[in-house]
Write a protein that binds this DNA or RNA. Structure first.
Lengths: 344, 344
DNA sequence: GCTATTAGGGAAAACGTTTTCCCAATCCGG
DNA sequence: CCGGATTGGGAAAACGTTTTCCCTAATAGC
């Protein structure tokens, strides 16, 4: 009957690390697995307790590879951020990480530098890692992303919407509304004729913000003169802001308010003024995102604050709901700072 | 001879996704695996080419779970950062991520918030993930860390040395020297009687910096009066700085120079002065790390710059060298800014 | 008191790789 | 032309889980 030479204790020996737990608890590895995974109707309370005790004693934790192999999915959640050196994105990442951790998931953070090839490379890799979800914190259009929208892996777009239009959930603020709020804030302050400096319009967030701002000034019969709308596709936000700031400095009639579609741009503008006109007052500057460090470093900068802390929660809830096209719009607020800032 | 009923095409069918590549290339899965892993002496150039072509056509990438299971190690490198909202740490993380990626590795980034329990939790999880290395970007003493030093997983301590003293490699600057350089810079400027505000001394980086600073002033016969050395174990660096700044503001004779052991502390100090004494000149402030944003946001802050970009490379090289106790000391530089900054 | 159901739990298959054997053919020196 | 080395490549084991079948005993329903 038995062709194996002398298989004494059946499969109780071996069975990987989980086998050790099983032996210690005097049960089969199947039972241990069930206890770990919370399958309650297959083990008596007494057995469950014994197994838990054994797990505790051995400080056992299932190897993720075995699990991933069998279940064809891991507990890894990929977060592809467009630019980690942006404190706002770093803050959102940190929030996501904490929330995912609480949900028993593990975040893998990547920096795509807003480059399609890099985003594709990471998408490939994360698919190979069998990530159970992919969070795009500032997505850019790329071939692999197009393929992916038809696949099973849940996709969550944060801040920027899916550049391909369809598929995937969204978590972010109402950028159109935020733009309008910013513009109205400016008008309420009696600050007219502002300059507008924006990032490339490939980002839906930037597009919406610009649209909201323009809409308010248009409606008030004070459309922004095109000479006062500056942008560039060259360099990062800081550099865009600095370049635009230099242009503003060179103008005959400098604007008393500069609205920027991101705080980083605003930092660049401020630097240009500071360096070109030392000792002179800065214009009022308005940004978006309200980096956590603004409170400490940019007392001159008013901004639209996005609720970083809430992003993690929202992402996890989207994940759990399993709805692949849900939208979560988080509330933004306007933070007003400064007034008569000097350029040191 | 054959006991299987009618195993037609042997194991050519099945064999997971790699089997499809094998079929397409007309080889066994073993050969495909060998080509993927660069085992050159087991496949002719012609076969290799056919396999590569098949891989390309199918856009195949091996599932990491299978590989990890067999090899008992993954391509994941865990990076446990003490505080991701510190731009300096974020910058180092970004550098590490890029370098690891170039080396074919994947970074998993976690934020321990300098809390031992959280660090332990992550260490456990990353062990379960069979991370091929663990990078501690600001480690804190914790039970699991002690266990780990005797295990096989390579440990790399960045910035802060191993709080347990032994085991693991180190990558960072010479903090003692940096402290001395900062103090000498101050003395060369003729700035005497500075205040010193430091983070908790549980970090070796902070200890070394403080020691270096004190040593220089001691040697010059101008030891720092203890009333001018402030710290706190309560709150993060920003808050420590702010609280200390308020104390300085309240002093009869305010120092004309404040040396802080981190930029974040310096930000806090600046804010305290700005808020308490609006319109008055700030003292000279000196920090450590030189966050990338300083150039844009903190024109008043001189600092010791650590070479972020170099950290990633250094980490990867340490990893590859396989030496578990190597030390890589990176060069720092002093960045001087500002002079007569106003508090707006 | 008999069967139908269920609770509790074990054996083994399956997951997708890598790697260890193994084998056939070719090559080379004598 | 023979024996050993070398080259190219296939079959199958191993990795540590989860999960699907099973099986036994107890319990409920009549």
């Amino acid at each position: 009957m038995s062709k194996k030479p002398a298989s004494g204790e059946s499969n109780l020996s071996g069975g990987g690390a989980i086998g050790e737990v099983a032996r210690r608890a005097g049960v089969s590895i199947a039972t241990v697995s069930r206890v770990i995974n919370g399958v309650t109707n297959k083990a008596s309370p007494a057995t469950t307790a014994r197994v838990r005790e054994a797990i505790r004693e051995l400080d056992y934790r299932p190897t993720s590879a075995g699990r991933a192999l069998r279940q064809k999915t891991s507990r890894l959640v990929a977060v592809l951020a467009a630019n980690l050196s942006n404190p706002a994105m770093a803050a959102i990442s940190a929030s996501a990480e904490a929330a995912l951790r609480d949900a028993g998931l593990v975040m893998v953070l990547c920096d795509t530098h807003d480059r399609p090839e890099l985003q594709d490379e990471y998408l490939r890799e994360m698919l190979a890692q069998q990530a159970c979800a992919i969070v795009l914190l500032g997505a850019v259009d790329s071939p692999k992303l197009r393929e992916l929208t038809s696949l099973a892996t849940p996709l969550i777009f944060v801040n920027r919407r899916n550049p391909i239009g369809t598929g995937g959930a969204f978590v972010g603020i109402d950028n159109r509304q935020a733009g309008e709020d910013a513009a109205r804030w400016a008008m309420d302050k009696g600050l007219s004729g502002p300059a507008l400096i924006h990032a490339p319009l490939s980002s839906s967030a930037t597009r919406d913000r610009v649209a909201g701002i323009r809409a308010v000034f248009d409606a008030a019969g004070l459309p922004l003169p095109e000479a006062m709308v500056l942008s560039s596709t060259h360099g990062d936000h800081l550099q865009i802001g600095q370049a635009a700031g230099r242009s503003l400095v060179a103008m005959d009639r400098r604007p008393s308010l500069v609205i920027c579609t991101s705080d980083l741009i605003a930092f660049g503008v401020a630097r240009a003024f500071r360096e070109s006109l030392p000792g002179q007052p800065l214009p009022r500057i308005f940004g978006f995102d309200d980096s956590p460090l603004n409170e400490w470093l940019a007392p001159h900068l008013s901004s639209v604050r996005i609720p970083y802390q809430a992003f993690g929660q929202a992402i996890v809830e989207t994940l759990r709901s399993g709805q692949p096209r849900g939208e979560t719009i988080l509330p933004h607020t306007i933070v007003e700072r400064g007034g008569q800032a000097m350029s040191p």
